Computed example of a mutant assay.
Amino acid sequence: MTALAERLTALDARIADAARAVGRDPGELTRIVVTKFHPARLIDDLAALGVHDVGESRQQELTAKRGETTDAVSDVRWHFIGQLQTKKAKAVRAASDCVHSVDRDRVADALHAADPEGSPLDVFLQVNLTDDPARGGAAPSEVEALATHIAARCASLRLRGVMAVAPLTAAPAEAFERLAGAAATVRRVVPDAAWMSAGMSGDFAEAIAAGATHLRIGTAITGPRPDRG
């Protein structure tokens, strides 16, 4: 617990420094702790340290951990940040407060159909910043059409902004500038979709400089992921 608290404090200080360096208020940023492969008790520990947002990338893990954590995490928001299959949309919606990976009409439709009369679900439109169409995310040329579809056809989804992972083959700053361009496109469709989910342990400073509002930080806070085998 002491080591976890020290890593969390150190990382938050680095985030604050990166924000101030580009004239931004650190209070504008949401730090999401990615707990992939870690046991549910880690989320209890994080909540005790004041963490309000955690992220999972696998539906089974998300569902299981949300069921295993204690009442102490009732204030925690659960973010689904992994690729989403339409067949798992119902389970993801049931266990998530926010979904970062809506990348095509069918995913949006499946999430909406899972609870069309329910409380609005915050979603990000995921953008593919690579040249590989097999990677998750909508192509930049598809962003406007997808945003329009979500806004017009999926009333139970609240489009908040865009999300992306910087490709390994490009400088993060350049990639996140392209994401900022996609964000501007989305805002032409949904003017208040001002969030940007970008930046991980190794590139959050570049993401902050490009306008990120939500940072997905894993090992810099949690330490190495446990051996699964």
Results as ranks from 00 to 15, higher is better:
residue 172 P to R: 08
residue 159 L to E: 08
residue 157 L to C: 02
residue 154 C to F: 05
residue 125 L to Y: 07
residue 129 L to H: 10
residue 163 M to F: 02
residue 163 M to T: 05
residue 124 F to Q: 00
residue 136 G to W: 05
residue 140 P to W: 11
residue 172 P to A: 03
residue 126 Q to S: 06
residue 126 Q to A: 07
residue 157 L to A: 00
residue 155 A to D: 13
residue 126 Q to G: 03
residue 137 G to Y: 09
residue 170 A to F: 03
residue 131 D to K: 10
residue 174 E to Y: 00
residue 135 R to P: 03
residue 153 R to W: 01
residue 132 D to M: 09
residue 119 S to N: 13
residue 178 R to F: 00
residue 150 I to Y: 01
residue 139 A to P: 05
residue 165 V to K: 03
residue 117 E to C: 14
residue 115 D to V: 03
residue 167 P to V: 13
residue 137 G to R: 12
residue 113 A to I: 02
residue 164 A to K: 12
residue 172 P to M: 08
residue 162 V to Y: 13
residue 176 F to T: 03
residue 136 G to F: 05
residue 122 D to W: 01
residue 178 R to D: 07
residue 130 T to V: 14
residue 155 A to G: 11
residue 147 A to P: 04
residue 121 L to K: 01
residue 169 T to A: 15
residue 141 S to W: 03
residue 175 A to N: 06
residue 158 R to G: 00
residue 170 A to S: 12
residue 168 L to N: 07
residue 151 A to D: 14
residue 175 A to D: 06
residue 147 A to C: 05
residue 138 A to W: 06
residue 144 E to N: 01
residue 148 T to F: 00
residue 114 A to H: 01
residue 121 L to V: 06
residue 155 A to V: 10
residue 146 L to T: 06
residue 128 N to K: 14
residue 126 Q to T: 03
residue 164 A to S: 15
residue 143 V to F: 04
residue 166 A to G: 09
residue 129 L to Y: 11
residue 134 A to G: 01
residue 169 T to V: 09
residue 161 G to Q: 09
residue 156 S to N: 14
residue 128 N to E: 06
residue 142 E to V: 07
residue 140 P to Y: 12
residue 116 P to H: 11
residue 123 V to T: 09
residue 114 A to R: 01
residue 178 R to P: 00
residue 119 S to G: 12
residue 123 V to S: 02
residue 136 G to K: 09
residue 169 T to N: 15
residue 131 D to Q: 08
residue 176 F to H: 03
residue 150 I to F: 02
residue 160 R to F: 04
residue 153 R to D: 14
residue 140 P to R: 11
residue 118 G to W: 07
residue 149 H to I: 04
residue 148 T to W: 00
residue 130 T to L: 13
residue 155 A to E: 10
residue 170 A to H: 12
residue 174 E to S: 11
residue 128 N to C: 12
residue 125 L to M: 10
residue 127 V to D: 03
